[in-house]
Simulated scan of single mutants.
Amino acid sequence: MAPRIILASASPRRRELLDQIGVRYKVLPVDIDESPFPGELPEAYVRRIAAEKSAACLARCGKPDLPVLAADTAVVLGNRIMGKPRDREDALAMLRKLSGKTHRVYSAVSIRGRRHAQALNITEVTFRDMTEQEILAYWQSGEPLDKAGGYAIQGLGSVFVKSIRGSFSGVMGLPLFETAELLSQQGIEIF
Rank of each mutant, 00 (worst) to 15 (best):
98 L>Y: 00
1 M>L: 12
49 I>H: 00
99 S>Y: 04
24 R>Q: 12
83 G>C: 04
151 Y>W: 08
169 S>C: 11
111 I>S: 06
99 S>G: 06
141 S>A: 13
2 A>N: 13
76 V>A: 04
70 A>R: 05
156 L>S: 10
7 L>S: 07
12 P>T: 13
78 G>T: 01
24 R>M: 11
78 G>A: 02
103 H>P: 02
176 L>M: 11
101 K>G: 02
37 F>R: 13
119 A>N: 05
81 I>L: 08
181 E>M: 14
180 A>R: 03
104 R>Q: 15
34 E>A: 07
66 L>G: 06
111 I>C: 07
138 Y>F: 14
169 S>Y: 02
93 A>T: 10
78 G>P: 03
180 A>W: 00
130 M>F: 05
45 Y>S: 05
61 C>H: 04
38 P>A: 06
161 V>M: 07
61 C>Y: 07
68 V>P: 01
187 G>R: 10
132 E>W: 11
33 D>G: 06
110 S>K: 05
34 E>T: 03
153 I>P: 01
1 M>G: 14
90 D>C: 06
60 R>E: 13
107 S>D: 09
63 K>Y: 06
40 E>W: 04
23 V>P: 01
28 L>P: 00
11 S>H: 11
178 E>T: 09
158 S>C: 14
52 E>I: 08
164 I>V: 14
144 P>V: 03
167 S>T: 05
104 R>K: 15
139 W>E: 13
37 F>W: 08
3 P>S: 14
159 V>Y: 12
4 R>E: 12
47 R>K: 15
91 A>P: 01
14 R>W: 04
18 L>S: 05
111 I>G: 04
48 R>V: 09
181 E>L: 14
172 M>G: 02
10 A>I: 04
190 I>L: 15
169 S>N: 07
142 G>S: 13
79 N>K: 14
89 E>R: 03
108 A>Y: 10
71 A>K: 00
118 Q>I: 05
91 A>L: 07
12 P>H: 10
130 M>D: 05
40 E>S: 09
125 V>D: 04
71 A>Y: 00
54 S>Q: 03
